[in-house]
Write a protein that binds this DNA or RNA. Structure first.
Lengths: 115, 115
DNA sequence: CAGTATCCCGGCCGATACTG
DNA sequence: CAGTATCGGCCGGGATACTG
């Protein structure tokens, strides 16, 4: 990590973390990145263990950061669709790398614990 | 995010997060990655706002995951040195990307709020 | 110098019930 | 269908004091 000061890096890293940290945020993002636009109910079904309240709050927070877009169709019954913004797609590489390193780490720790 | 299932990615991403999430972990890692081996007191001085207890616990957790190494010199007064393991260096790319995306995000949000 | 030991608070998150 | 409202528990993290 040459020619980069920790004090400088820190803020960027923490800003990124603030976005993806949240019990359900990574998996919500992965679903939207992978499957495209989804309705509230679809997401709810894809995440069987999440409560409606948590799904709502996590989505609202991601929306506030402009990582996802919320589109409301004025129909009855209501329809609301969520999708990742162009801007939010920039998180793809980070999530991808975290995925790869994380899997390797899980295997490393598993092997270690089996010794 | 083609040909990768969210359910599969999820675990890797969360495993990575479990390591770098912690109020002081990113900056501790950045300091050790950037400045190499450091003593407990050096780190404490570099992070003026951290309490001794927090520094200890964050270091212990990173050590448990084998991201950093703790070396104790049997001297009086005691000397303890911390360094990033070869294995832990694999986090470099992730932190680097989070830094870049995060800085861009901060600027994006700053510009937005100034409109 | 490099830690422990206690005490304590705020906020994330879950359970549950209600609604336009 | 897609949300709010309310209550409550857990635990990450801080303040402070003590120690081999």
């Amino acid at each position: 990590m040459d020619n980069i000061k920790p004090e400088t890096c820190r803020y960027g890293v923490e800003a990124s973390l603030e976005i993806i940290v949240g019990k359900w945020k990574p998996i919500i993002l992965l679903h939207l990145l992978h499957g495209g636009t989804k309705r509230f109910g679809e997401l709810k079904r894809m995440l069987p263990d999440i409560t409606q309240k948590m799904l709502t709050t996590q989505l609202r927070e991601l929306e506030e950061q402009e990582i996802i877009m919320r589109k409301v169709y004025p129909e009855v019954p209501p329809r609301v669709e969520y999708s990742v913004t162009e801007y939010g797609r920039g998180l793809y590489d980070i999530l991808q790398q975290m995925h790869e390193w994380g899997i390797a780490h899980l295997e490393y720790m598993a092997k270690k614990n089996s010794r």
